[in-house]
């Protein structure tokens, strides 16, 4: 494992911790898209079924369990927690996320490394992860004002993707048989979706002002 991959995993983990901290400390999930969180839970459940079939390392297995458990916990809090669910911006979070799921499933049935159950689910999870942030970005755009922790959450999620791209570039040059164009193309799409957010995040950081997205 190279340093870029490790930093990618760590920024991913930090983003989830920030989100859990926000929900736990403020007892509020305002500004957070339940649809994006449901998509991430689905992404992890579909991809990490290989927990039962392939063993890579203790690190990989532990991280997989952490990602599945934390994403389910977040969805549970936003849907069922007595106090937290009251702050959910339901009327702003109207993205038709089922269409994303259907489109990604169709694509995974057409394009995958091998037509087996686990490989189709794996490709599906990669495609779905690439677009899962869309409901969140739309919600932020609609609400305009982005609170500090929500801004940090999305920033670290974007950083995770950027580090994974560096990781693939590194692996491409250091490994003889490294070819995984499904991950790489999807990863590039996913990172590109953050470009706009990063731009405004940088502006607010430079001006030391509150993060605001244009309507």
């Amino acid at each position: 494992m190279n340093i870029f991959r490790f930093l990618g995993d760590m920024t991913h983990l930090i983003s989830i911790l920030i989100l859990l901290l926000k929900i736990y400390a403020t007892k509020s999930c305002s500004g957070i898209s339940l649809k994006t969180q449901e998509l991430y839970a689905l992404v992890f459940l579909a991809r990490y079924l290989d927990l039962f079939t392939d063993f890579i390392s203790v690190y990989n297995s532990v991280m997989k369990v952490v990602f599945i458990a934390s994403s389910l916990a977040i969805v549970w809090c936003m849907r069922r927690h007595r106090v937290v669910r009251r702050s959910y911006d339901k009327e702003l979070d109207t993205f038709r996320h089922y269409f994303l799921v259907a489109a990604c499933l169709a694509l995974a049935l057409l394009v995958q490394e091998k037509f087996t159950f686990l490989e189709v689910l794996w490709a599906f999870s990669i495609y779905l992860e690439a677009v899962a942030i869309l409901p969140q970005l739309v919600l932020l755009q609609r609400s305009g004002n982005v609170d500090n922790l929500t801004g940090q959450y999305v920033f670290f999620l974007g950083a995770y993707r950027a580090f994974y791209i560096l990781n693939w570039i590194y692996r491409y040059f250091t490994e003889t048989h490294f070819s995984r164009w499904i991950s790489c193309v999807s990863g590039l799409v996913q990172t590109a979706l953050y470009a706009d957010f990063f731009y405004y995040y940088f502006i607010s950081w430079k001006n030391n002002s509150k993060l605001q997205l244009p309507a």
Binding site: R5, D9, H12, R47, D50, D54, I56, N60, M63, K64, F67, E113, K114, E119, W122, Y164, N167, E175, T176, H177, F178, R180, S183
Partner: peptide, 10 residues
């Protein structure tokens, strides 16, 4: 080296 179908990333 990484064989097709072995996914070692998260």
């Amino acid at each position: 080296s990484t064989a097709v179908g072995v996914h070692d990333e998260l």
